[in-house]
Amino acid sequence: MSFPSCIQCGTRSNPCRCKVVGPTLGFVAFVVAAVVEWPIGAVVYIFRHMKGRRIMGHPARVVYPKVSRAIPI
């Protein structure tokens, strides 16, 4: 059984120009945030459409990029 990982090549944040740890942890953080925020966003969407969309988009717009950029390897 292999461990799934995300690889980002072409980055200038380290000498190897490839990142594995940052994108992989970013994806894990994205999944954890999505499990919590998507049901909440779906309920809010019923009453306030734009607010619900913002809540459901938060893991992709904020969580994944911040975690991925914070770890340079």
Rank of each mutant, 00 (worst) to 15 (best):
T11E: 03
V44W: 12
H58Y: 14
I55G: 14
G10M: 02
I71C: 09
V31C: 09
P4A: 01
I7S: 05
S5M: 14
V44E: 06
V36D: 02
V21W: 13
Y64R: 06
S2H: 06
S2C: 02
A60Y: 12
V67S: 02
G26L: 03
F30G: 01
F30C: 03
V63K: 13
F27K: 08
V67I: 11
C18Y: 12
V35G: 15
G41L: 03
G26Q: 08
P15L: 03
L25P: 00
K19H: 00
V31G: 00
V44S: 06
Y45W: 14
P72V: 04
A70D: 01
V62G: 01
V43D: 01
V31L: 12
I55Y: 14
P4Y: 07
P4D: 01
V44A: 06
P65K: 01
A29W: 02
M1R: 10
R12E: 05
F3T: 12
V20Y: 08
V44L: 07
R12V: 03
T11N: 02
C16Q: 09
A33E: 05
T11Q: 04
C16P: 00
Q8I: 10
C16V: 09
F47E: 13
V20K: 09
Q8H: 13
V44H: 08
F30D: 04
P4Q: 03
M56R: 11
V67L: 08
T24D: 05
I73R: 13
I7D: 09
V35D: 11
P15K: 02
C6S: 12
R17E: 14
F30V: 00
R61Q: 10
P23K: 09
R69E: 08
V21M: 15
V43I: 11
S2G: 01
I40W: 08
Q8N: 14
L25M: 04
S2D: 11
V43N: 00
R53F: 06
R53H: 01
P39M: 07
P15S: 03
A60D: 07
M50A: 09
M50L: 13
V28R: 03
A42F: 11
F3Y: 10
K51M: 14
S5C: 05
N14L: 02
R48D: 14
E37M: 15
G26E: 06
R54Q: 12
V20N: 05
R69N: 10
R61W: 13
P23G: 05
V43W: 10
R69K: 12
P39T: 05
R53D: 02
M56K: 10
F3V: 09
T11D: 02
C16F: 11
N14K: 04
